[in-house]
């Protein structure tokens, strides 16, 4: 495992833990899109179905379990916790996430490595992950004033994507494999979605002012 992949995994892990701790400690989830969190839970469950069939490494298995349980915990807090659920911006979080699920599932049925249950689930999870942040980005834009932790959550998620692309470039040159185009294209789309957010995040950091997205 190269350093880019490891840093990507760590920023990914950190983003989820930041969000979970924010919700746990403050008992609020304002500014957090429940739809995005549910999409991520679906992404993790669909992709990590191989947890019990294919063993890669202890590291991989532990990380998979952590990602599934932490995103399930976030969704549970937002749906069930008596205090947290009341702070959810339901009226603002209106993105039609079922459309994303349906569209990416159809895409996975058409473009996959093999037409098997596992491979379709894998391709579906890759496509869905690429667009799962959309409800969150829309919600951030509606709320305008982004609180620090939510901003950091999206920042770390974006950093994870950037590191993964560096990881693929590194692997392309150091390993003899030919690239899989499904994660490449989906990964580039996914990283591109953060470009706008990164720009405003950088500005707010440089000018040392609170992050505010344009309407």
């Amino acid at each position: 495992m190269n350093a880019f992949r490891f840093l990507g995994d760590m920023t990914h892990l950190f983003s989820v833990l930041v969000l979970l701790l924010k919700i746990y400690a403050t008992k609020t989830c304002s500014g957090v899109s429940r739809k995005t969190q549910e999409l991520y839970l679906l992404v993790f469950v669909a992709r990590y179905l191989d947890l019990f069939t294919d063993y890669i490494s202890l590291y991989n298995s532990v990380m998979k379990i952590v990602f599934i349980t932490s995103s399930a915990a976030i969704v549970w807090y937002m749906r069930r916790h008596p205090q947290v659920r009341r702070t959810y911006d339901k009226e603002q979080d209106t993105f039609r996430h079922s459309v994303l699920v349906a569209a990416t599932f159809v895409l996975a049925l058409i473009f996959n490595d093999r037409f098997t249950f596992r491979e379709i689930c894998w391709a579906f999870s890759i496509y869905l992950e690429a667009v799962a942040i959309l409800p969150q980005l829309v919600l951030l834009q509606r709320c305008r004033n982004v609180d620090n932790l939510t901003g950091q959550y999206v920042f770390f998620l974006g950093a994870y994507r950037a590191f993964y692309i560096l990881n693929w470039i590194y692997r392309y040159f150091t390993e003899g494999h030919h690239s899989r185009w499904i994660p490449w294209i989906a990964g580039l789309v996914q990283t591109g979605l953060y470009a706008d957010f990164f720009y405003y995040y950088f500005l707010s950091w440089k000018n040392n002012v609170k992050l505010e997205l344009p309407a």
Partner: peptide, 10 residues
């Protein structure tokens, strides 16, 4: 050389 990259990432 022609093998596809393994699915060993998260």
């Amino acid at each position: 050389d022609c093998l596809p990259a393994p699915k060993d990432e998260l």
